[in-house]
Simulated scan of single mutants.
Amino acid sequence: MSQDSTARIVAGLRTWVAAAAPGARLPSNRALTAEYAASPVTVQKAVQQLVRLGLVEARPGVGT
């Protein structure tokens, strides 16, 4: 089930990234957890997958 949730979040965030302006920040993990009704670990896995795909850049202390 976690994979389904991760895939659902990745799909939603891919849509968000496509519409966002360059340099825009993703919502916080806490906000994404609430929006997708998923665990923080699942949200983190989804964001990491977007990083691996090269769609977002994670900067410690700054955001994603």
Rank of each mutant, 00 (worst) to 15 (best):
L13I: 04
V56K: 00
P60F: 08
P27M: 07
A24N: 07
N29G: 07
T15Y: 06
L32R: 00
K45G: 09
G63N: 04
A31G: 03
A19N: 12
V51R: 10
P22F: 04
S28T: 15
L32M: 12
A18Q: 13
R30A: 12
D4P: 02
W16G: 01
A31C: 06
R14N: 15
G23K: 10
T33Q: 09
V62I: 14
R30S: 09
A46P: 00
A21W: 04
V41W: 12
R25P: 06
V17I: 12
T15E: 15
N29L: 09
A31W: 06
V43N: 01
A34T: 15
L55R: 07
E35K: 10
A18D: 14
A19K: 14
V56E: 01
V56T: 01
V62P: 06
V51Y: 08
A11T: 08
S39P: 03
W16P: 00
S2V: 12
L50R: 00
A34G: 14
S5G: 14
Q44D: 15
G61H: 05
A21F: 08
P27W: 05
W16F: 11
P22D: 10
V43P: 00
A24F: 04
A58R: 13
T6G: 03
N29V: 12
L32F: 04
M1E: 13
V56M: 02
P27K: 05
R59Y: 09
L53D: 14
L13R: 01
K45L: 14
D4M: 12
I9M: 01
E57R: 15
S39I: 05
A46M: 01
A18I: 04
A38C: 08
R59Q: 08
L55V: 07
L50M: 02
N29I: 09
G61M: 10
T15I: 14
A38P: 02
R59N: 09
V62D: 11
A31T: 10
R14H: 11
R14I: 04
S28H: 08
G63F: 03
R14T: 11
R59F: 13
P27Y: 08
A31D: 08
T42H: 05
V62Y: 08
M1A: 11
R52H: 09
Q48R: 13
A20I: 07
G54E: 07
A7C: 04
M1K: 10
A11N: 10
A24C: 07
L53K: 11
T33D: 02
V62T: 07
Q3D: 09
L55Y: 05
A20E: 10
L32W: 02
E35C: 06
R59K: 12
A19F: 06
A58H: 09
V56S: 01
A31P: 02
Q49C: 11
S5D: 12
W16A: 03
V56C: 01
A37I: 09
P60H: 14
S2E: 12
S28P: 06
S2Q: 13
T42P: 02
M1H: 11
G12P: 03
E57W: 11
V17F: 02
L13M: 13
Q48Y: 09
Q48A: 10
K45E: 15
P40M: 03
I9V: 15
A19V: 05
V17E: 02
A46Y: 00
R14E: 14
G12I: 03
R8S: 13
T15H: 12
